[in-house]
Design a protein around this nucleic acid. Structure first.
Lengths: 211, 211
DNA sequence: CCAATTTACGAACGTTCGTACTATTATAAC
DNA sequence: GTTATAATAGTACGAACGTTCGTAAATTGG
């Protein structure tokens, strides 16, 4: 038998394949649209065979969110960390974020944004997982902002939480406008907004960048 | 028999009562969560009796969106139009918008925002209706911005579309942070962000406000 | 008050939902 | 190669889904 470099056992790799499809479906139809039957059909498996991988639908939803979060980390965060800390990294994070919502693997945009809108008022494990993921991501954003303050590219008086909040808003409205309204210029508007956001938080006394 | 001042026939007023509940359910569970059965239970009606008012589930969804839009107009737009044109009206629109998402009639926040996230990738009458409503609202925002330019409270170089876009983003992230993350300070952050937005678009040469 | 019409109900349809069980096949370890 | 185990399929279930139909009750207009 051939064993790939990853040496994944059969079950694990079909599970991963299932979750790829699950993330895509969630992207288009939301978590509510992710049913065992439709997912089985999409993967060519039987309902019961697929079901055995997760034990319950809720576990499937949680696994899908985890899979999506892992994908997000790989595609959005990790590459941006290779950019120079400070403003370049902040812009890279933001740009990758916008790209992510247009990824071909996500026919309906960011699955977490959709899921958040669905589950923000439904207490339970799904919402908890969502909160955790979004909290992690906001933490990454805030840290990148703090580093930009350290490099002198942002004013020391900048509130990282406030700036992350506003950046998040731009990402959400970009998603909203492009997806729902078909606004092709949304991305450009988003970049314009980010520029103004950074400019508004530029150092008041033009101290040269350090580090 | 007593006939109210509105002189609504029986059917119309139960229909309105149904739609009130429908909007509330949509607020919490989204359009996907709005089922004939649950809505019948919430109103104390039979499934078939309720169904007869709409003829199909899709028609129920459309009627729910229309009802929500009407509510939005009454609660958010109309009162703000009594504020002085220009910056005051713009702030009133924004503030009413934020209040709307916390309205007691909407236990899960703005139903249109939730529905938009669900249906932004599902072509059909529901998405079309959603687009129309959101487009109308954006039009109102842009007009208010244009008036603020005319009164001299915003710079003539201000792009109404860009500013409306960014305001929309703040509203979305406020909704997101408060609902999902339980961020009680979201509203204050939103007002701070709006202030910054207006300040950033303040007239460059301090021409006195006209009109 | 009566007749016409609107409004609501109850029962049943076929489908899909999530899940439980059993059986069968494919894989991994020895 | 044989055996133990993991992975998939098959079947069936009760519940909920949207929808249809025939009928009873309530409301309306004359």
């Amino acid at each position: 038998m051939k064993k790939g470099i990853t040496a994944l056992r059969k079950g694990k790799q079909t599970r991963a394949a299932i979750l790829d499809k699950a993330v895509a479906i969630t992207s288009r139809l939301g978590l509510d649209g992710l049913t065992i039957g439709s997912l089985a059909q999409a993967t060519g498996m039987s309902k019961s065979g697929l079901f055995a991988h997760f034990g319950s639908r809720e576990e499937l939803l949680l696994a899908t969110l985890d899979h999506g979060a892992q994908l997000f980390t790989d595609v959005v965060i990790a590459p941006a960390l290779r950019a120079q800390r400070g403003a370049p990294r902040l812009r890279a994070l933001f740009g990758n974020w916008l790209d992510w919502t247009e990824s071909s693997a996500l026919p309906g945009g960011c699955p977490m944004i959709g899921a958040a809108a669905e589950y923000d008022d439904r207490p339970g494990p799904v919402r908890d997982r969502l909160r955790f993921g979004q909290g992690q991501w906001i933490g990454v954003l805030r840290k990148a902002i703090r580093l930009a303050i350290e490099t002198g590219e942002l004013d020391p008086a900048t509130d990282p939480a406030q700036l992350a909040f506003e950046m998040f808003g731009i990402a959400l409205v970009t998603h909203h406008h492009r997806r729902l309204l078909g606004d092709a210029g949304a991305r450009q508007r988003a970049l314009t907004a980010l520029d103004r956001l950074i400019a508004a938080n530029a150092p008041r006394s033009p101290a040269r960048a350090a580090a």
